[in-house]
């Protein structure tokens, strides 16, 4: 039986979620039209998404390097990192299917969740379908 998540980690994860949601909203990525504006190279191109990813990576690239040299996270026994290392068909097929859905709607999972606060019916529909897609994968392939 796995140990429950330490309280300190739970508090940090809630704060991290808060920062994440705030970042998605501040950056405008919560708006699918803005994401499609980035993906639409042949249209009125909006490069904002590059700065969002660049801002994120400017912190994660150096910080992860040092954090992962530590023996363990601040709260908890070990790091929970992905174990797969091979580039396989599932990775490419999954990323491709995701890319098609992202291109059609302009929503990836984080912004879609954050956009739920608008109570817009299209967002609710998208998130419901996204959860169904995740469940389908679980039932068919896991």
């Amino acid at each position: 039986m796995k140990a429950a998540t330490p309280t300190g980690a739970n508090i940090a994860l809630f704060l991290a979620g808060l920062l994440f949601g705030l970042g998605l909203a501040v950056s405008g990525m919560i708006n699918p039209a803005k994401v499609i504006g980035f993906l639409d190279l042949a249209g009125a191109w909006d490069p904002t998404l590059i700065l969002v990813m660049g801002g994120g990576l400017a912190l994660t690239l150096p910080a992860f390097h040092f954090i992962l040299k530590r023996p363990a996270p601040l709260y908890g026994q070990k790091f929970h990192l992905p174990t797969l290392t091979q580039i396989d068909g599932k990775l490419i097929a999954g990323a491709s299917l995701f890319g098609v859905g992202w291109g059609i709607a302009g929503f990836c999972p984080g912004p879609a969740l954050a956009a739920l606060v608008t109570l817009n019916s299209s967002v609710l529909l998208f998130v419901a379908a996204m959860l169904a897609g995740m469940a389908l994968h679980r039932l068919l392939l896991e």
Partner: peptide, 15 residues
């Protein structure tokens, strides 16, 4: 929107 949601949900798990 439903098709896109299904693709995003399924694809992100597969990938």
């Amino acid at each position: 929107t439903v098709i896109a949601g299904l693709l995003v949900g399924f694809g992100t798990r597969l990938g």
